[in-house]
């Protein structure tokens, strides 16, 4: 195996540490649109960072955080307004694409932004992904009991003296951070797929929330490895190959669990 492939494998498995537990919450709390919208808004962050000559990662993180918090405020205290989220999600995507195109000198590889370029990650990216994912995982584990309780029924958490609104805000921040970590690897369009598909594949085999998160991590790691292998064998782009592998895993799981 060449170095790029090893780095891709390392980065992908590191990212899965964050996307597996968060993906479970995205599914349990029906936040798929939320993840999508935040990921799409990250494109605006790229454009903004390049226009201001700031580090791209910083711009992505800042815009993802701001947008996620805006969405959080918008959706708090009521059922998720699907239409509003849909408008914001696709509006952010369209605006982000326009903003990137308006940048001088065409300094951006649009395909890499949309679908990621995991085979192009450097040693620093790998270290960053592992550090970021470990941080996300640590906070998720720290707030785990409260987050799971509130996913079931927020009033159960409140009666126990917890503050589910605060945990919701923490989850929102973790999602924004994960989006920022994922953008370079799988791209704006496939981030929420990486969150949802492994967790969905794990559901049929899990009997507890914790088992689902662990199985989602395993499914995610297998998808990364299988997707990279597919990508090498068929010459297909790596990001979509990983998601395709996860989709096949999900389908296989449905058949086996039956």
């Amino acid at each position: 195996m060449d170095d790029a492939l090893i780095r891709a494998l390392l980065a992908g498995t590191g990212l899965v540490l964050a996307t597996a537990p968060l993906g479970c919450f995205v599914i349990w709390r029906r936040m798929a649109f939320f993840g999508d919208a935040t990921a799409h808004a990250a494109l605006l962050g790229v454009a903004l960072a390049l226009a201001l000559s700031l580090p791209v990662g910083l711009g992505v993180l800042a815009v993802a955080l701001v947008f996620a918090l805006l969405l959080f405020r918008l959706t708090r205290g009521g059922e998720a307004p699907d239409t509003v989220l849909g408008v914001l999600s696709h509006g952010a995507l369209a605006l982000g694409l326009m903003a990137v195109a308006l940048l001088p000198d065409a300094q951006v590889d649009l395909e890499a932004l949309l679908f990621g370029d995991i085979l192009d990650v450097g040693p620093r990216d790998v270290a960053l992904v592992w550090a970021g994912s470990a941080g996300v995982l640590a906070v998720a584990l720290w707030r785990w009991q409260g987050l799971v309780t509130a996913s079931l029924n927020p009033d159960l958490a409140r009666a126990a003296g917890l503050r589910p609104e605060r945990d919701d805000a923490v989850l929102t921040l973790l999602l924004a951070l994960t989006v920022a970590l994922s953008l370079k690897l799988v791209g704006a369009l496939l981030i929420s797929a990486l969150l949802i598909l492994p967790a969905a594949a794990a559901r049929a085999f899990a009997r507890s929330p914790e088992a689902m998160a662990v199985l989602a991590a395993a499914a995610g790691a297998v998808s990364v490895a299988a997707g990279l292998a597919l990508s090498v064998a068929l010459g297909t782009p790596a990001g979509p190959s990983i998601i395709a592998a996860a989709a096949v895993l999900y389908a296989l799981g449905r058949v086996v669990a039956r």
């Binding site: 349990w28 079931l152 559901r203 507890s208 929330p209 689902m212």
Partner: peptide
């Protein structure tokens, strides 16, 4: 308890 079928819970 509105138990979401995606949340496994014994």
């Amino acid at each position: 308890l509105a138990l979401d079928p995606t949340l496994p819970m014994s």
